[in-house]
Amino acid sequence: MDWQSLGAYGGLIFRVLLSVSILFFLVISLLLLFNRNYGKNVIARFINAMSGETVDISSWEVSLGRAKTCDIVLNNPTVSRFHAVVVRRGKGWMIFDTNSKSGILVNGKKIDKRAFIYDGDIISMGTSVLTFRSPLFKREQPQKKSDTAYQKIPAERKVVAAARRDSGRAISALVNLADQSLVLLFAEDYIIGRANDCDIVLPVMTVSKHHARLLRQGTVWRLEDLRSRAGTQLNGTDVIGSVPLRDGDVIDTGGVYFRFIADYMNE
């Protein structure tokens, strides 16, 4: 036995094994990194208040704007090219205003660079209105002042009938045609507009601060235009002065459409 050459062969085998093992190990351990099989889970949703279109969000940062490179493209000339960024950060979701021209309104209030947003918040950018939905992050603050007069629930005539049963008198209602929400009219006098002191607040730029007025005279509801910019239309025709409303009438206040449900049954 030639121990020298055996040792040399042994050394060679050792070096071969060592090199190959190093290569094998590095490649295997790094290829494990590519072992991904994750679906895209939907974690939030934007609903276009006008058209009802929904956009699912499955990433933690979303850019909005008119530019084609944005994650959510808004084809609206009143929206800036890079208008906003919605991110999931810390305790919840935030919206950042990235140097937009017209600013961002959250629930009707203009924000200053950044704000937290919660489930159900309405975000306006220019004339685009989006509803933000993410069930894990609900707002803890109470609703706005006109809570008793204003309930968002799915539109059903049964609801109107139930309201009539509960309150003992006829309750008429407005159905918001964009998101099919119901506004029950418990009181006598409603102001519709963009300002916060209105009874029905519409955070849309084309709606005037005090746009229109709903007044109940006896059993009849009347609609009056409060010299708004865009005007108020009833079934397509402009409203001048005060006009009576009938069941099924379509009211247009600055681009927001309502259907009037009258409940004169028990009067």
Partner: peptide
């Protein structure tokens, strides 16, 4: 240690970059 080991080390650097590029899609 041999050319094979040296090439393995280079492959490791390349795999770092490939991982970064592919993983960028799923970044928070």
């Amino acid at each position: 240690l041999g050319m094979l080991t040296a090439v393995a080390i280079m492959i490791a650097y390349v795999l770092f970059l490939v991982y970064a590029i592919r993983g960028a899609k799923y970044a928070r």
